[in-house]
Computed example of a mutant assay.
Amino acid sequence: MSVPRRIGLTGSIGAGKSTVAALLRARGLTVLDADEQARLVTQEAEVLARLEDRFPGVVRGGSLDRTALAARVFGDAAALADLNAITHPRVRARMAALEAQAAASGAQVVIQDVPLLFEGGLAAQMDGVIVVDAPLPLRVARVRARSGLSEAEIRARDARQWPASQKRARATAVLENDGDLAHLEAQLDRALKRLGIGGPPAE
C-alpha cells in the first residue's frame, strides 16, 4: 500500500477554508477535517471526564459547552496547553487512521484541513501547503455574519494565530478569496496543477 501525498489546507479565521475544502471534495479529492475530528473527540466519555476535571462546569448534560470552554482557555496559555494535551493526540490519531483508510482505498493524495497547521507544527509533515487568505475586514465581516462574535472578539482570535503574511510565506500555494466563487475556483485549479494534482469537478 503506497503512502498518499499529504497536502495541508489552512487559512486565517474567515478566509474561506471550508469553501475550498468543499471545492476539493467536488474534484474527487479526499479531505480530512481536523475540526470535525476534534468535535468527535470531545464527544468521547473519557475526554469529557478529563475536560470536566480540568475545567469544571464545561460539561453540561453529558455534552461539552464549547462556548464555556473557549472562554476558559482564551488568553490563558497554560489552560490552552492543558486542553491541547487532552485533545490533540486523539485528533491526530483519528486523522492518521482516516489517512490509512484513504490509502487502503487507493487515494494518491490526501488533503488535511487543519486550521492551526503552522501553529501546531504540522506543516513539516506535509508535501505541500495551500493557504486561503482574504483581507482582514472581509474576513471579519464573514465571521460576524455567521456567528455571534463581535468584531473585537474576531480580531482578538485572529491575533492569536500566525499572521497571514507568515502563513503566506510558508505556503506552497496561496488562494486569494476576495472575489467570487469562479475567481477562487480558477486559482484552486491552477494551484492543483502546480502541485501535480488534478481532475475536473465531479458532475
Results as ranks from 00 to 15, higher is better:
Met1Gln: 12
Met1Ala: 15
Arg5Ile: 01
Thr10Cys: 14
Gly14Pro: 04
Lys17Gln: 10
Thr19Gln: 14
Val20Ala: 13
Ala21Phe: 11
Ala21Asn: 12
Leu23Arg: 13
Leu23Asn: 05
Leu23Ser: 10
Leu24Tyr: 10
Ala26Tyr: 02
Gly28Met: 09
Leu29Ile: 08
Thr30Arg: 15
Val31Phe: 07
Asp33Phe: 04
Ala34Pro: 03
Asp35Pro: 11
Glu36Cys: 02
Glu36Gln: 14
Gln37Gly: 00
Arg39Ala: 08
Arg39Thr: 03
Leu40Glu: 13
Thr42His: 03
Thr42Ile: 00
Gln43Val: 00
Gln43Gly: 12
Glu44Trp: 09
Ala49Lys: 08
Ala49Met: 04
Ala49Asn: 05
Leu51Glu: 01
Asp53Phe: 07
Phe55His: 04
Pro56Met: 14
Val58Thr: 13
Val58Glu: 04
Val59Ala: 06
Gly61His: 09
Gly61Met: 08
Leu64Ala: 10
Arg66Glu: 08
Arg66Trp: 07
Ala68Phe: 02
Ala68Lys: 07
Ala70Val: 05
Ala70Arg: 15
Arg72Asn: 02
Val73Arg: 01
Gly75Asp: 13
Asp76Trp: 02
Ala78Ile: 02
Ala79Tyr: 00
Leu80Val: 00
Leu80Thr: 09
Ala81Pro: 04
Ala85Val: 03
Ile86Pro: 03
Thr87Gly: 00
Pro89Ala: 09
Pro89Thr: 05
Arg90Ile: 13
Val91Lys: 00
Val91Tyr: 00
Val91His: 01
Arg92Asn: 03
Arg94Asp: 13
Ala97Ser: 10
Ala97Trp: 05
Ala100Met: 04
Ala100Ile: 04
Gln101Pro: 01
Ala102Glu: 07
Ala103Ser: 12
Ala104Leu: 10
Ala104Gln: 14
Gly106Tyr: 10
Ala107Tyr: 04
Ile111Tyr: 03
Ile111Asn: 05
Ile111Leu: 11
Gln112Trp: 15
Val114Asn: 02
Leu116Ile: 06
Gly120Asn: 15
Gly121Asn: 10
Gly121Lys: 08
Leu122Gly: 00
Leu122Met: 14
Ala123Arg: 02
Gly128Tyr: 02
Ile130Phe: 07
Val131Thr: 10
Val132Trp: 09
Val132Cys: 08
Asp133Gly: 06
Asp133Gln: 08
Ala134Cys: 09
Ala134Asp: 05
Pro135Asp: 11
Pro135Tyr: 05
Leu136Asp: 12
Pro137Gln: 09
Leu138Ser: 09
Val140Lys: 00
Ala141Gly: 06
Arg142Ile: 11
Val143Met: 06
Ser147Glu: 13
Gly148Ser: 12
Gly148Asn: 11
Glu151Thr: 08
Glu151Asp: 14
Glu151Leu: 07
Ala156Asp: 14
Arg157Lys: 14
Arg157Ile: 11
Arg157Glu: 06
Asp158Ser: 14
Asp158Ala: 15
Ala159Thr: 10
Gln161Trp: 11
Ser165Ala: 15
Gln166Phe: 03
Lys167Arg: 15
Arg168Ser: 09
Ala173Gln: 15
Asn177Glu: 12
Leu181Asn: 08
Ala182Ile: 01
His183Gly: 11
Glu185Phe: 02
Ala186Arg: 15
Gln187Gly: 13
Gln187Cys: 14
Leu188Trp: 11
Ala191Trp: 09
Ala191Glu: 10
Leu195Gly: 08
Gly196Ser: 05
Gly198Asn: 07
Gly199Asn: 07
Ala202Leu: 15
